[in-house]
Simulated assay, not measured.
Amino acid sequence: MSTTTTKRMGRPPKVTRDEILDAAEQWEPGELQFTALAEALGISVKTLYYYFPARQALLDALTERAVADMGLPDIMQAASWRAVLTEVALWFYRLGRERPGSFIDTNVATKRVGLQLLRLTFVRLGELGWTTSDAMRANIVVSNWAVCRGESAHANPVDKYSPEETRAMLADYFSADVADQMTAVAQLFGSDRQLFDDGLAIVLAGIEQLIVNKSAART
């Protein structure tokens, strides 16, 4: 995708390209029209065309801007389906940790990047022999689990409480022996990343059983 635009002659307008993108990124793609955007900015439609020769060029620029801000994993270099889905999971895990609420609130910029990642997932898994429907099923499972794990790590990280604080909190809900047992179990998890890795291994094992193996059996 490229945001290269045709160089225009004459004096540039007072509004900047970034100011146009700032305003445009608040709109859902289906509602983004040059006439309405120009009116909202208090400029002429001709001014928009100065920077963006077509509506698609503006949409492409918005996607590239969101990708530059949020980043995308290089899954096209992933050697296996596990590597592809691991990169997808890591991206959504970071999203949950660093931008909690953006996935649930369907933030437009997040949606742009998430859909771009989904498209790349389709392409790479397709190259590895997956059907689009299987790629979609796996992406939904991985992305939803990973973003929830990230949100949980943001709100309640493993090291948020000391063992003593954990024991005191649990004692408000359970008997002493149950509080002791649950405190001991909680100490087995060394970090949020370990919880992520353990959970992802379980998720990928399920995908292998329910999607990969069944697909192989059909062929």
Rank of each mutant, 00 (worst) to 15 (best):
M70Y: 11
D177L: 15
G10C: 03
A24K: 04
T63N: 09
P53V: 08
Q26E: 14
A217M: 11
T63W: 02
A216P: 04
N144S: 11
A179W: 02
A138V: 09
G199Q: 10
P12T: 04
Q116P: 02
Q77S: 15
F122K: 04
V88A: 10
V203T: 09
I75K: 03
R97N: 01
L188R: 14
V113I: 08
L118C: 06
F34T: 00
L95D: 00
E151C: 09
A135P: 04
M169L: 11
Y51A: 05
R99W: 15
R167G: 08
T110A: 02
D172Q: 08
I43F: 15
D197I: 01
R193V: 06
V108A: 12
I20G: 02
D197W: 06
L59G: 04
Q187Y: 07
L204E: 05
G190D: 11
A135C: 10
S191G: 09
D69K: 05
P53R: 06
I104M: 08
P12F: 06
T219M: 04
A57M: 11
G190K: 14
A205R: 12
E164I: 11
G206N: 13
G101S: 11
T86N: 06
Q116T: 12
P163E: 07
E19C: 03
S175E: 15
F189K: 09
D177N: 12
Q209A: 12
R119P: 05
D192C: 11
S175F: 05
A135W: 02
